[in-house]
């Protein structure tokens, strides 16, 4: 379980950053183009999983990383719930109320809270997928 050859390691190290950025791009443009939080989150998780697969399971401190990603997951959901519940406190008293200024359709900063939701959902999905993957890897490593 020492990972793959040097070529694979080097290439994945170069590619992982680009894949990560592409995931963030998909998340941020969720309200303008097809895609959004879930699709972007899976891409971001893919970049991490690629690194782990290429470099072998002994490279990272897997347990620490698993704790971190599950903590990030919980925090992301709590932020999402807080944002949604804050709608109850604004004037109109609706849960999930889109209380931020809407802006002009088509701009990157528009549609009020939806890009923020997308970002939070993306973080949550990425962390959850990574947690599931690490859970399986840790279980395998205990053999």
């Amino acid at each position: 379980m020492n990972g793959m050859s040097l070529i694979v390691k080097k290439i994945t190290q170069l590619m992982a950053g680009i894949i990560f950025l592409y995931g963030v791009y998909v998340m941020l443009h969720g309200h303008l183009t097809p895609g959004g939080g879930f699709a972007g989150g899976t891409i971001v998780a893919g970049s991490f999983i690629l690194l782990i697969v290429a470099n072998g399971i002994r490279v990272f401190g897997l347990h620490r990383e698993e704790q971190l990603s599950s903590a990030v997951e919980s925090i992301a959901i709590l932020v999402f719930l807080l944002l949604a519940t804050a709608g109850l406190l604004t004037g109109a008293m609706w849960f999930f109320q889109n209380y931020m200024p809407h802006g002009t359709p088509g701009n990157l900063v528009s549609a009020g809270l939806i890009p923020v939701y997308n970002l939070v959902v993306g973080t949550e999905v990425a962390a959850a997928l990574l947690t599931i993957f690490l859970g399986f890897v840790i279980y395998k490593a205990e053999d």
Partner: peptide, 8 residues
């Protein structure tokens, strides 16, 4: 087409 508002 895709159900997305392209321009206002």
């Amino acid at each position: 087409e895709i159900p997305i508002l392209k321009d206002a």
